[in-house]
Design a protein around this nucleic acid. Sequence first.
DNA 1: CTACCCATCACCCGAAACAGTGATTCTTAC
DNA 2: GTAAGAATCACTGTTTCGGGTGATGGGTAG
Lengths: 207, 207
Amino acid sequence: MIRVFIVDDHPVVIEGIHSLLQNEKDIAWVGQAMNAASCLGFFVNNTADVVLMDISMPGMDGVELCAVMKEKYPGVFILGLSTFNQGLYIKKMMENGASGYILKNSSKEELITAIHSVNDGSIFFSGEVGQALEEYQKYSKTKLPLLTPREKEVLELIAEGYTNPQIAEKIFLSQFTVDSHRKNLLAKLNVKNTAMLIKFAVENKLL
Amino acid sequence: MIRVFIVDDHPVVIEGIHSLLQNEKDIAWVGQAMNAASCLGFFVNNTADVVLMDISMPGMDGVELCAVMKEKYPGVFILGLSTFNQGLYIKKMMENGASGYILKNSSKEELITAIHSVNDGSIFFSGEVGQALEEYQKYSKTKLPLLTPREKEVLELIAEGYTNPQIAEKIFLSQFTVDSHRKNLLAKLNVKNTAMLIKFAVENKLL
DNA sequence: CTACCCATCACCCGAAACAGTGATTCTTAC
DNA sequence: GTAAGAATCACTGTTTCGGGTGATGGGTAG
């Protein structure tokens, strides 16, 4: 018997999912909350196996609540819920310990598969969520300034810790040229020093 | 009907999975390969919906094959297989476009759930694999030198692009002190400049 | 053909980073 | 109570970075 708890600030969603699950004999509805605080309140004296959690809520949002819950109750599995495709938040919520993610309008079968998988300690992403993540990555890439092949080359060598003179020697250039590329990188990516350059590059998967 | 293809260099595994799946009426066994080359050969004139792929194989390994397959046939979903817990390779394979991961000794139910989920475009991780990933992360963290609170603080500010004098002003320290912390960071993390420091920090989730 | 971008090279200069060395205080652990 | 490490500060160099400015040649698209 899997004990399920839900946190969502939309009563409609709570009711909808409740009705989808009420005839499942191995799933027990143990409670619900409409904000982070009452969710945490519930867990003081009660528990659950799987928590369905909305991503956006007034006050503390799902991303933060997820981190707090996982900190206090590491054994509780969290399954994220969202109505729309929020790649960035999905990513953050996974980093905060969620075990999976589905859309609120997913089918009954998908919902139940997800709950079972998560309860077994598995990780489950619905297909639409996977697409959202991909689209988010593509989207962030289109917003990136285009780097020339030489610039990418120099960027990679900088990330590996080579200095301008070393890079120059390595790819047979004048150190002035390498310096030019380096300055162009800083300008194009709108950062002001090596630290920001590398951080930006890693975060945007340029390396 | 889900068309399943398997790539594994162990005949025992191929046979085992074949027998597990042969009575499933919505799963069709379309072929098998014992190395990357013959897998690629199969896909020249044939196709499949889901490919079960071993992580370690002679010649081109699963990680690489996964990248090649996804490049040539983006519509084919790849489900990773491994006998042991290889956190690092699992991570790499996911980065190369795999849709999920299970252990070879997983139950029939889990195998079938995984194939269905992946075929729907979802992402599925078996619980043991999730544990492997977690353990891998913990393991890599234990291998990390311990940074003091001050050092972490300085590290974060460096990553945000502040210079030593700016950091000194921001947290009310002498720039000499900040410089000391910075040098200790370089020494502890065994890197030789800011670029390597930030790259290392991001990769090891110190930021 | 000409305007534009890429790639190359050059120089100056101040600021920042990096290397080495050493010192003091304070807490924490044995 | 003392040994160890954290946190603080100090001085001196050398190297690298980053800003500014500008030049040349090659390819390409209008």
